[in-house]
Design a protein around this nucleic acid. Structure first.
Length: 742
DNA sequence: CCAGCTGCCATTTTT
DNA sequence: TGGCAGCTGG
């Protein structure tokens, strides 16, 4: 039986082929970094189709990001190129959340319920929690909204409804969080809204309450594929287990060594327990790494081998040893950035494309020193995963208009834009309107059109009523056009007729132009959708925009953002105890936290193809204070033979780096500042604040400085710390100085 | 109503 | 140090 090799088998190695041709049944492909897991996954899908075991519409392929879903679809379609034809290929490929939303909407339509529920984004959720805490009279200092929100989300990750929370957890924070959780769910119901967790939880509930629907989907999906299985949470696991219960053809691809999202609910146990959860499961390892050269892989493997909770696999390099991992030792953060940039310039001289160079940091705060250095050297760079397009205020505003047009009872959207641009409808008017709406059981938008007799008692003035009516009429006018006009035209109409675009056009701040550009960009994105509802769904789920062309650039991003990417040269700065591994991970989650940090280190190292640099500084400015740093334990875990320590121009400590003294205090005793010197200083409360007063330094006593102010600030401000600005523009932070006197 | 001040905070972030 | 939300005084 020597049939001609199928195109999808071309170039696959033996272990990959085993994965592709493995028979039906539960299958876990443990694919290490750089082993071609997406290729293997798509080849298996192509194989199923080619052998007639499944049709495209019977395959459910789940990923975590829309980007991954898109890539999967594109690759699969590429393989299917010859055959297939016509029909929709892989019609069920997407994220967990989009699949959940799809199933829920489909079902709601079937039973004739409103299927147009709103999906709340992160900031909507935060605001809701905040409001609830406020109305429950809980001190935000003792229970920050972000924490409450986080706890609720983690419960949802585990598919726990308020009445399913284990009793010992209910007691946490005096049992108040659980009340907030209940109120939050009630509120979502009122708003006909769901958050991301609900999309899965409600799906689970649907499957439980209506077994015939579950069965329908079980029959429909003969084969289920999951990418990045190590990132699944409990709810996702339960969901998959239900859907796969009948056919049992669940193929998961993942790498326990790349699980770095535990903090947002990912359950490493899911992948570790796969064999137990799915009896008769096959586990196949992909261990041939095609990405990195030997020293890099050797170092990365050695580091990850220190972890206990792993299934274990041994990555094998397919290339030569290559260059050793280079260790860049630096004085402080700035010095580190300079040394890294020097190396980047060297790489560029060696014709390495800037697009192939990345700096991966642990925390975003590390980015600034690199940006400053890039600007100094005129090195083009890009930051990946910064402020997301759809999170920008101007975009969210227009989205709110569109949401209100699509769903007149979306009160959150109403609140956001009723006075944007300014229409003289301030907080007071909205408060009154809310009252009236509640009394009448109407949405805010509908309440605008109520009879005056219903509105007046709430305290609304005639002028405000008129303005509200105008606003409602405008939204109505848009709504009337929503199906007749192409979305792009509708959105443009909204931007113009609401006065929104004019508002920015007339704004003189430097960012106004960017905002107008963003609006134009948004219109372009609208052009790709044919329905308002479709676009809103996309926006709620996607939160991402493509594009960004231009010349070669160095990439700067967090380690988390780098997962799935690869570069010729990778820099990993800030490998110091406390930053990498991060102190918070250790204090919060102990050994579990440390192991996740180590996986993060492993992910970072395995992004590199040919050149890997690890950076480590002696001291770092953290929250305004200099701290001595110890090299990361992960550096010590890299075997010596894989490392080359870069020579350092100056010996450490040769130059003073820590906060240079403001002025040299004489040893010991107090000193009268000379008249000339003392007139040089002016004092402000914060570096980013305007200087609030000028004064003269009259006395210097060690770290104690006495200043006579021309115009004295309050005592409290002085206690809080201050800034002294030298006349040549240099400023010196000095919150560790004590200031007395006036 | 908004600019400017103050207090508070400081990992990672997708859907 | 620096970013942000919330408050307040002009």
């Amino acid at each position: 039986m020597t049939a001609p090799a199928a195109p999808y088998l071309e170039g696959l190695n033996p272990e990959q082929k085993i994965c592709v041709e493995a028979p039906d049944g539960p299958l876990l492909i443990l694919a290490g970094a750089g082993t071609g897991k997406t290729r293997t996954l798509t080849a298996r899908i192509a194989h199923l189709l080619a052998t007639g075991r499944a049709r495209g519409s019977q395959i459910l392929a789940v990923t975590f990001t829309n980007k991954a879903a898109k890539e999967l679809r594109a690759r699969a379609e590429n393989y299917a190129g010859g055959g297939g034809g016509g029909g929709v290929f892989l019609s069920w490929a997407g994220t967990f959340h989009s699949m959940g939303a799809r199933i829920l909407r489909h079902h709601a339509e079937l039973v004739g319920r409103r299927s147009n529920f709103t999906i709340l984004d992160a900031s909507d959720q935060q605001r809701l929690v905040k409001d609830l805490l406020k109305s429950a009279n809980i001190d935000p200092a003792r229970m920050p909204p972000a924490l409450a929100h986080h706890l609720i989300e983690r419960w949802k990750d585990r598919a726990l409804a308020p009445d399913q929370i284990p009793s010992e957890e209910k007691q946490a924070h005096d049992g108040r969080i659980i009340k907030i959780y209940r109120a939050y769910q009630d509120q979502l119901k009122n708003l006909n809204a769901m958050d991301f967790g609900d999309l899965l939880m409600e799906c689970l509930r649907l499957f439980r309450d209506a077994p015939e629907i579950l069965e329908q989907y079980q029959n429909r999906f003969s084969h289920i594929f999951v990418d990045e299985y190590q990132d699944t949470n409990v709810a996702q696991y339960l969901w998959l287990r239900l859907l796969a219960a009948r056919e049992k053809n669940l193929c998961c691809v993942g790498d326990d060594d790349q699980s770095i999202y535990g903090w947002r609910g990912a359950e490493l146990g899911n992948i570790l327990r796969f064999e137990k959860d799915f009896p008769g499961a096959t586990i196949i390892r992909l261990e041939r790494n095609y990405r990195s050269t030997g020293h890099i892989l050797g170092g990365a493997s050695a580091v990850i081998s220190h972890n206990g909770s792993r299934l274990g696999k041994t990555l094998r390099a397919q290339e030569g040893d290559g260059d050793k991992i280079r260790l860049i030792r630096a004085h402080d953060g700035k010095d580190e950035a300079q040394r890294v940039c020097r190396e980047i310039l060297t790489l560029r001289e060696k014709r390495v494309s800037l697009d192939e160079i990345a700096i991966l940091v642990r925390s975003t705060a590390q980015m600034r020193s690199f940006e400053e250095e890039f600007l100094d050297l005129a090195l083009p760079y890009r930051i990946i995963g910064g402020a997301r397009f759809y999170e920008r205020a101007e975009i969210r505003d227009i989205i709110a208009y569109l949401r209100l047009i699509a769903q007149p009872d979306d009160d959150l959207a109403f609140r956001r834009i009723v006075n944007v641009p300014k229409r003289g409808l301030g907080a007071k008017s909205v408060l009154c309107l809310t009252q009236a709406a509640r009394d009448e059981g109407a949405s805010l938008l509908d309440a605008c059109s109520l009879h005056e007799d219903s509105l007046k008692p709430s305290g609304l003035k005639s002028a405000a009523i008129r303005k509200l009516r105008d606003f409602a009429a405008m939204i109505k006018r848009f709504a009337d056009h929503k199906d007749a006009l192409p979305l792009e035209t509708l959105a443009e109409k909204v931007m113009d007729e609401s006065g929104y675009r004019r508002m920015w056009a007339e704004t003189k701040t430097p960012d106004a132009e960017t905002r107008l550009d963003n609006l134009a960009e948004m219109l372009r994105a609208c052009g790709e959708f044919d329905s308002l509802e479709g676009y809103l769904e996309h926006v709620a789920l996607v939160m991402e925009i493509e594009a960004e062309a231009g010349g070669e650039r160095v990439s700067l991003m967090t380690l988390h953002a780098a997962k799935g990417l690869e570069f010729d040269a990778v820099f990993l700065p800030g490998w110091e105890e406390g930053l990498m591994p991060h102190i918070r991970a250790l204090t919060q989650d102990g050994l579990r936290g440390l192991e996740e940090e180590r996986r993060l280190a492993h992910v970072g190292m395995t992004r590199a193809r040919r050149n890997l640099y690890v950076g480590c500084a002696d001291m770092r400015l953290i929250h305004g204070f200099w701290q001595d740093c110890l090299p990361s334990r992960f550096i010590a875990e890299i075997p010596q033979e894989h490392v080359e320590i870069l020579p350092i121009a100056q010996p450490f400590g040769a130059e003073p780096v820590a906060s240079a003294p403001l002025f040299s205090p004489s040893e010991g005793g107090a000193e009268e500042a000379s008249e000339e010197e003392s007139s040089l200083f002016s004092v402000g409360a914060r570096a980013h604040h305007k200087i609030f007063g000028a004064g003269t330094v009259s006395r210097v006593e060690g770290k104690k400085v006495t200043v006579r102010f021309d115009d004295p600030p309050s005592e409290k401000t002085i206690m809080a710390g201050f800034l002294i600005r030298l006349p040549d523009g240099d400023s010196q932070g000095s919150s560790n100085f004590v200031m007395t006197g006036k």
